[in-house]
Design a protein around this nucleic acid. Structure first.
Lengths: 162, 162
DNA sequence: TATTGTTATACTCTATAACTATA
DNA sequence: TATAGTTATAGAGTATAACAATA
């Protein structure tokens, strides 16, 4: 509320805003490119890719609620996403024996193979898009982005657990 | 293409992917929070906020094509966005006298006042969400994110100019 | 009563392409 | 012919809330 200047140059409070706008523009640029390629080469969307990636790491599958948390997609919308992927034969839903309210989704063999191919291509695209950024900057960004994420998570308004 | 190890620890090629996933998760987390607050407190969406921000900086307004480039929204979709905002009385479209194909959008007085309030709140939310990140990290992130953006822009597949 | 997942709804965004009018 | 913007359309994502089955 008092003075916001450092060396008379920049308003400190504005730096956060500038950073956010930059981050938003950057991820939007990259996201659009990846979306375009995912669609044209694999007929997939980014949320679908994200959901499959979560299942790829979990051979035993995940409960839909857990999938919802990890992908940051609401329960209701996860149902829709999962349905489309199941229709495509990439994943399968199984009702748990222990607690019959619980549904577990897991990749089918076809889904696993398909995601493997897609993830390889995706990784190449990312590497290509970042090819002018040197490794030390990549590492720094990774760390700093993590710090940022933690900070944001701490200051969410909703009843998040973290 | 040869060896991908640094100190035997991490595959270098994977770091880019890790960074991307982290960035995506972070911006998604923050975006969702901002979207929630923009909607509940101002009845606005993020793309609308972005579009208004562009016009806020340009008192003389912007041609729709230019607005489309800056917001990274296609021409056709800019029309829809602009129409909603015009209906709300926040912006106005004027056909250029010189070249009658050209339409210029600019903020109304009401739109300017409204965006001013919204931007203030928005800036506060950002500052709050980033409050655990120290200023030097903010600056580093800003620079590195810019490097990343430039790299991505250079390696887009489409016929982009930059 | 609380939890898990589904259904329903309304709105917005996204992508593509065909179209109109100007130039 | 090329450009600026509009219209049309289809498909997904997003948010909210009500609901059914199960615990």
């Amino acid at each position: 509320m008092d003075l916001d200047f450092i060396g008379g140059e920049v308003q400190e409070g504005k730096q956060e805003l500038r950073l956010w706008l930059k981050l938003l523009a950057t991820t939007k640029l990259i996201s659009q490119e990846l979306r375009r390629r995912l669609r044209s080469e694999f007929g997939a969307t980014l949320p679908q890719f994200d959901l499959l990636a979560q299942l790829y790491r979990e051979p035993d599958g995940l409960r839909l609620g857990e999938l919802s948390k990890r992908t940051m997609v609401t329960n209701g919308n996860v149902t829709g996403l999962v349905e489309r992927l199941e229709t495509d034969g990439l994943i399968r839903r199984v009702t748990s024996g222990a607690d019959r309210r619980v549904t577990v989704a897991r990749l089918t063999d076809e889904g696993r193979a398909f995601f493997g191919r897609m993830a390889d291509a995706h990784e190449g695209w990312i590497r290509d898009l970042m090819s002018d950024v040197d490794p030390s900057t990549i590492r720094t960004l990774l760390e700093d982005a993590d710090t940022l994420k933690q900070s944001a998570r701490t200051h969410l308004s909703g009843p998040e657990e973290g």
